[in-house]
Design a binder for these strands. Structure first.
Lengths: 218, 218, 218, 218
DNA sequence: CATGAATGAGCATTCATTCAT
DNA sequence: TATGAATGAATGCTCATTCAT
């Protein structure tokens, strides 16, 4: 996970046979660096050019567009994350454990990568074309991973049948986001473990007071 | 609730002894109308002036600022909603019933007032100064209403004690938002009742399969 | 002199048979008050209206124009000053004494009325229409007073003949202005007496070192 | 001196290794051309762009700011003038001769470069930030040159000791400015030589009628 | 005597983007 | 591969001014 927050996503550098121009890397790094300071829309191509040390024109050579630049950078991050998530989930058995892993992963990603989170939770939302973008495709890929876990859970009888899976997924995703949103907004740190524990309890067992809810659940 | 989506919030028109200039109303209405079509940041003062039929300068006379205009319009809506919500909750007894009412109210507001929802869920999030604004104060007022219900529920022994109330609140709010978010994004309608039922079940009882979860809960 | 700096010039209030509307006075006072804080061009009618407590429209009722307002206020000051100057000079005999009085009067006016000075020395200069204005007529009236003294001085043999009077006048006026200009700019106080002494020596006797110049001259 | 009034100051074009973009020159020339017609504050960026034939945006690329544009143009002129003045003074011996040279230079500059004069004597005065600007630094450089001459004069016993040098300087500067100010305002031509003669006589010997004043002084 | 409502015309400034070299 | 030069099209905002009441 550290590589993601510190360097350009591997995908951009790894791809076979492409020597990856230096300028392209500089530009992407400059954008990331700037995103740590301000919202994407508040970043100008002039600033990107200045910080990267290359000309503005080069941005257009490589990315065609300011938005494209963002989406490519974003895409790199997300693909890496999703690849890793799927990899880790592969080793875990049991619906609940997998669900727990997923929740923790997401909360951990958000905590360890504030820039990405900021963008995903706040910035891109308002962007009109975001939901057609490739990045959003990755968000859907993430949704799918959850759905698979949930479906499996129902099949195995571990999850209840009388609630639509889509609703479950939305509550889980919404829960994750809203657990860390205030922290992001007010720029406070949080413990992914603690939030995972809370969210997991609530979503799994509900908030109603029942004898069962006093047992340890994780 | 219908009045809210079709006219300027009463607050602006009702207040004693202020004749509320026509132009001010026109401007607010024009903004609302434009918000139905595009994101706030994509709306220009020129467009507002054009649609309202008054001069751009008048916007600044009455609202001082483009942002202020948004916040005043937003504020009117939210205050009206919160007033009404508190009123309705006053007549309802029982933590669970009150919680249910609150969830339904919110989902219903979002469904019956897409413009407002769009702004609240997507647009203002990315605005850097939003969280200092008066509108955000109202969001906090809303949070407080939930907290009160939750605290009462714990006191009465209806809600579990082993999970922080704040976490509960965030999951509920996140659940509400994410239940309707896809619908908002893809501009589909939804039934507040159905979503309320789902969300209520999940949040109250959890998603784990247990005999108790097969009983009717609402 | 105190009345000039603290109230509206008498002229505006005194003139026979005109009840001088309250609003007019308020406006003029508001302008003066604002001129103490900022340059005329930086003052808006909105600010004048706000500080005076009357509507913007009233400014136009009474003064027709923002510039007119300035010129009327300016004119009042200057007429009062010139009236007084002429009165005082009437009692003084001897070209040099009269010249000295004039220099001191001007330096004293500038010192005791910074607002007026600021305008006269800095603000109005750049105003394209200033030199056609009534205020400028008063500046010319002032020039004439000097010229009369100088002409008399030449006639009496007290002043040299081999330099055009106009040049003398310009050096005197330029000397006066430049003696106090730095003080005005840097908002420091000065002693009109001291500056008068210096200026008088220089203009009268020149800066060349001669035995005669070591005698007391005032 | 003619180059100064007709072209962009050499400084901007001469400096080694900088190819000085065409647009930048065009903009500066356009400003100068416009300054011949109206006051700086009355000149809009739109007009500059129109007359220069380049886009408004380019002004900001090269000068950052409308004010900066003025100050850069101004600065070029003044630096050139001051460099030349110091050079010429270097060849002249004797306080009085040097003083005379300085007065003539200034009057000649003003006569041969009306635009610059207009700005220096009328426009920039009212600009609140002018006195912090680089241009004003050059004005102070000019003051220093005079002071050096005066100090030397006193040391050598050529100038009187009983008047502060600062006062002398102010009278000289004020004299220079007021000698040509009416000509500038009414757009009449004048002879720098004649005005120099008058001013020199007055400042050096004073206006009082004495036998010595009938001798030739220059 | 006074004003609330409304505005036309303008203004400095911004910024993503293009293209010849 | 890289860029310096240049820009079109907005954009939010200002302010002196008018006029019906």
């Amino acid at each position: 996970m550290t590589t993601i927050s510190e360097t350009i996503p591997k995908r951009a550098a790894q791809s076979t046979a492409k020597p990856v121009p230096k300028g392209k890397v500089k530009i992407a790094k400059a954008l990331i660096s700037l995103l740590e300071e301000k919202e994407f829309n508040a970043i100008t191509t002039a600033q990107i050019s200045q910080r990267s040390g290359v000309s503005e024109a080069l941005i257009y050579k490589y990315f065609g567009d300011k938005r494209d630049l963002l989406h490519q950078v974003l895409g790199g991050y997300l693909d890496d994350y999703l690849d890793q998530l799927e990899l880790e989930l592969r080793g875990i058995k049991g619906t609940l454990k997998r669900l727990r892993k997923l929740i923790w992963s997401q909360l951990n990603l958000y905590e360890s990568n504030r820039v990405l989170t900021q963008i995903l939770l706040l910035d891109v939302r308002s962007s009109p074309c975001y939901f057609d973008s490739e990045s959003y495709a990755q968000v859907k890929r993430h949704s799918k991973i959850i759905m698979n876990i949930l479906e499996e859970g129902v099949k195995k009888g571990e999850l209840r049948r009388d609630v639509p899976l889509v609703s479950m997924r939305q509550v889980i995703l919404g829960g994750i986001e809203h657990m860390c949103l205030p922290k992001i907004i007010y720029k406070k740190r949080y413990s992914p473990e603690d939030l995972t524990k809370d969210l997991f309890k609530i979503v799994l067992e509900g908030i109603v007071n029942r004898p069962a809810n006093n047992k340890k659940t994780a």
